[in-house]
Amino acid sequence: MMSENAKDNHLASITFVVAVVLAAFAGLGLLWFGIKDPDSFSNLGPWGDFFGGTLNPIFTFVTVLGLLLTIALQRKELTLTRKELERSANALEIQSDQINAQKFENTFFQMLSIFNEIVDSIEIGHTNIKKSFKGRDAISYICNLMDEKYKEYIISKYNELENRPYTETEMVFKFSTFFIKSHSINMSHYFIFLYNIFKFIEINEYSKKYHSRMVRSMLSEQELKLLFYNSLSEQGRKFKDFAEKHALFDNLPITDLLENNHKLYFSEKAFGNDDAAE
């Protein structure tokens, strides 16, 4: 369908063509009359002067009206053009947002894919039975080893300084740092990359709540346990903020912790018990 602006331009063009055609016929008619009857044509001179003096102001007025009409049509056309440009700019902005959001989604899922590869690449050997564990089996093995080492560590630290025994909080933090550091060769790349995934979600304006929930759903209970104590260690302390903000330990049973009261080292948000948790 023809737009309103196009209709106005079409009507103005037709009017101009009709005026030109009528003027041409009038001129040809007068020329034919002058050639056919020169004497009569010459006697019409006074009438021509009369009509010329009368019609010239009228034609001038009509010309001015035509000029004003042209200016009005041009202004209307410019207004419509400006609105069209604004709509185009808005459409481009929306398209740009959609492209950036799609880029974020693509990068996010690529990072998840790389994270899975990192999990699968984790490998640790058991020297006594000459067996190695890979992937999440290796993580489960490290968690079981943590339970054993924690009992040994607590006993040794209680007996280490009789005059100044460590507080329970000091022992938990020191053990976390000690244990995570002793397995850094196996797990450091895992912790670092997972930290960067949450940081990528945190700083990107196109991230949604479901992105962090998706990462959380990929983590096993054993992984959550390691992440819990990694967040208490000197190496992984920065991760604690992400754990609390994104309710990372929502699926971690308290009974899986080395001691149930260790839960108190995090806010309730870390366990999904606060409405502010994402």
Rank of each mutant, 00 (worst) to 15 (best):
L28V: 09
D37E: 13
L161W: 10
S217F: 09
L232V: 04
I180H: 01
L252V: 06
S220K: 13
I94E: 12
Y150C: 05
N56F: 15
Y195A: 07
A270P: 02
L65M: 14
I139L: 14
F108P: 00
G125P: 01
T79P: 00
I185D: 04
H189N: 08
E268T: 07
S267I: 04
S176H: 03
N43E: 14
F108L: 02
N230R: 04
K149F: 10
G45Q: 05
A12P: 01
L65A: 15
L226H: 02
S267T: 15
D137M: 11
I94W: 09
L78K: 09
S132E: 11
K208R: 08
E148F: 09
F200R: 02
I203T: 13
E234R: 12
Y206F: 13
Y206H: 12
K269I: 02
K76A: 10
I180Q: 01
I180A: 02
E160K: 09
E162Q: 09
E223G: 00
F109Q: 05
K134G: 01
N144C: 03
L145C: 02
K157S: 06
E4C: 03
I122D: 00
H246G: 00
S182W: 02
K76S: 10
L68E: 05
E148M: 05
G53V: 08
Y210R: 06
E84A: 14
A23M: 09
L31S: 06
Q110S: 09
Q98P: 02
